[in-house]
């Protein structure tokens, strides 16, 4: 019997799509080679258009619903435990490592799911201004976030590069290179969860060829880099970002409250008290 090999595609706006460039790059998994989409400038632009509408939908989804959708994502993953373990083991990891990575991933998703309806209570507060005013600082998600995944094959690392901005209501464009196959596999569970299209777009490719397209795009509000890039590449990103005062985070924390702070804008609202 001939083994049927899957064609992996980018996941944009709730659909599986090839790169418009038609280009692919090859990754080896076990004894097989897989061709993954080599994301182009046009693909990034399409993803941003989708992420903008995704942001509107996700940001207007209630915290309670966001919590349930993220929790459901962990249920989707659990159902596909075997496929993930097989990808990890075929990427030359031990069974023990693969199981630990998978277990971590589930735990992290559940942790962030439970944060989605609480973080505003942890990072906002009433301000004791002098005078008869009601004054409160609360937070808005920053908007469309581009997140470069670490270039090591790990499901939990992929999830930690996506979940913090997603939890607070941002839409995310996630790009992976060596871990592209795992990321595009993850996209299938995203598709099966109840995340509205455009909230999370998952792409594979070579970031070094996309630096200008990402960091000069004015509709991307924040670029977060979870990979170890050259000093030269970081400088290029930050120079481009300065043209629109874009936020850039290099290896941001993925733990605790500090994991979500970069993706928030603090808004302070005043109103007089009176009769």
């Amino acid at each position: 019997m001939i083994e049927i090999k899957k064609t992996y595609k980018n996941y944009v706006d709730g659909k599986y799509v090839r790169s418009e460039s038609g280009k692919t790059y090859s990754v080896k998994l076990g004894n097989e080679h897989f061709e993954l989409p080599l994301t182009s400038r046009k693909d990034i632009r399409d993803a941003v258009v989708s992420s903008k509408s995704g942001f509107k939908k996700w940001n207007s989804t209630s915290p309670y619903t966001r919590t349930q959708i993220l929790y459901r994502l962990s249920e989707m993953l659990e159902g596909n435990r075997k496929s993930y373990l097989s990808i990890l083991q075929n990427s030359s990891f031990t069974k023990k490592y693969a199981e630990k990575d998978f277990e971590n991933s589930i735990q992290k998703i559940i942790w962030f799911a439970g944060l989605a309806d609480k973080w505003e209570q942890l990072v906002g507060n009433l301000n004791p201004v002098s005078g008869e005013y009601f004054n409160i600082s609360h937070q808005n998600p920053i908007g469309v976030v581009f997140s470069l995944n670490k270039n090591t094959i790990s499901l939990s690392q992929l999830i930690l590069s996506i979940l913090p901005p997603l939890t607070v209501g941002c839409s995310v464009i996630s790009l992976s290179n060596d871990s592209g196959l795992l990321a595009l596999k993850f996209a299938e569970d995203i598709n099966n969860s109840d995340l509205p299209p455009g909230v999370l777009n998952i792409l594979s490719g070579d970031f070094t060829k996309l630096i200008d397209d990402v960091s000069k795009h004015v509709e991307i509000s924040l670029v977060s880099i979870h990979d170890n890039l050259s000093q030269e590449a970081i400088k290029k990103i930050e120079v481009n970002a300065s043209e629109s005062v874009k936020r850039v985070k290099i290896n941001p924390s993925t733990e605790g409250i500090s994991s979500i702070l970069p993706y928030l804008e603090t808004k302070t609202v005043w109103h007089p008290k009176g009769t």
Binding site: N140, V245, T266, T268
Partner: peptide
């Protein structure tokens, strides 16, 4: 906007965070 004044304007206080969205800074 980082600060919204409702039925008032240009009120400041040391306990009240101030700063911008977008190209008004971070």
């Amino acid at each position: 906007a980082g600060v919204v004044w409702a039925n008032t304007f240009n009120k400041f206080d040391p306990s009240s965070p101030f700063g911008g969205y977008k190209e008004s800074g971070f």
